[in-house]
Amino acid sequence: MMPDDERGDTARAGEGRSEGRFVGPGDHADVAVVVVTYRSAADLGALIDSLRREAVAHRLRVVVADNDSPDDTLEVARAHSDVVALPTGGNLGYAGGINAAMGVVGDADAILILNPDLVVHAGAIAALRERAGRPGVGLAAPVIVDGTGDRTPSLRREPSVLRSLCDALVGDRLRRRPASLTEMVLQPAEYAVAHPVDWATGAALLVSREAATAIGEWDERFFLYSEETDYCRRARDAGIQVWFEPTAVVRHSEGGSGASVALAALLAVNRIRYYAKYHGPAATLLFHATAVLNELTRAADPAHRAILRTVLSPGSWSSLPHATSRAAAAPGAAARAERASNP
């Protein structure tokens, strides 16, 4: 039989969760939720509301790492007395924002990385925790649906010259082509069952504490795009599996990072940078050529012509969006995080 004082502690913990409250920086959390924001004032509230519903069943800590938003994003976060609001000190990008937040997540069994323009469906966190906690698994990705409820193709295979060449020529047509001929995972059957994957888009990803420690920081050379490709590869290289969990669902409005020719060019360039990180000059030259071909085959569109010019001119890559400063909180510097408080 459980002692009276232990029963009281359990009851009090249950009462806190029933209110949908998040645990404070000094308390143990089942999951620390990391949200990197930039101009996210319109979306952040809905995400926090969905996390409160999940906080009934889990001890959640929510850390909002804001990349110097010019709108009211931080004010939205500060309106919640139990949310850790962390100004990063600049626009550090997605990887930089995650690393800044990791310095203040505190004692947590897992870290759930979420885009601010998401809504978490009921039971998603439980399903991701269960999957990531299995032997050999350390990362778990959910189903991502759009605003109409349609499933989006969020899974990917490791980039290769052949896959990049075929994707440049075919795009998302011929969805039944062999896995060796496309980086995209397009067949519906592959979204119906749980299975290991090379990588998943970084909008929603749960990482066990053990996996996060083994993998280390996110690579900030990828300001935006390809950072999740790199992180998942490093997980696999460390012997940690990345799994897709179809019973976990999040809704993504998409476009949270904005849309521009400069960002589209950064996407293309960071794919080349990622490939160069793990391959020699000759292989990288071939991969670069497939990136050029991808834009050439779409050059009727003025945006793709602009991207083509950038891809062809490595000297211009430094002018693409990049981190503006590095004033993030250091590991253990929870006192520098701004914990919002109501009057």
Rank of each mutant, 00 (worst) to 15 (best):
E245A: 11
E254C: 12
P3A: 08
A79F: 01
E130F: 05
P3H: 05
E183S: 15
A340E: 00
T10L: 15
A204F: 10
V242F: 07
A79L: 00
S18H: 10
R177P: 10
A100I: 04
A110G: 13
P87E: 04
W243C: 14
V33T: 09
M2Y: 02
D219E: 13
E245C: 13
P314A: 14
L47Q: 05
A291Y: 06
R234M: 12
E54T: 05
C232D: 11
L118T: 07
A214Y: 00
L92N: 05
R21L: 10
P116G: 10
G216M: 06
A127M: 03
V64M: 02
G20Y: 00
L155H: 02
A189I: 11
F223V: 14
S40V: 10
A340Q: 00
M102T: 13
H279M: 07
S180R: 15
A323V: 06
S69W: 03
A126D: 13
R336P: 00
R305N: 08
V292D: 04
W199V: 12
G138Q: 03
G332Q: 14
P70S: 12
P302D: 08
P281N: 08
Q187N: 07
E6P: 01
L86Y: 03
E220M: 07
V137C: 07
A110R: 04
Q187R: 15
D30F: 06
L296R: 12
R131M: 13
A306G: 11
D9A: 04
D146F: 05
L51S: 07
A300S: 15
G133C: 05
A248C: 13
A333Y: 02
A303S: 15
A283W: 01
T290V: 09
M2C: 10
T148D: 15
V311C: 11
M102V: 12
A100P: 01
Y275D: 08
H58D: 11
A95F: 02
L112V: 08
H195C: 09
Y191M: 08
L162D: 12
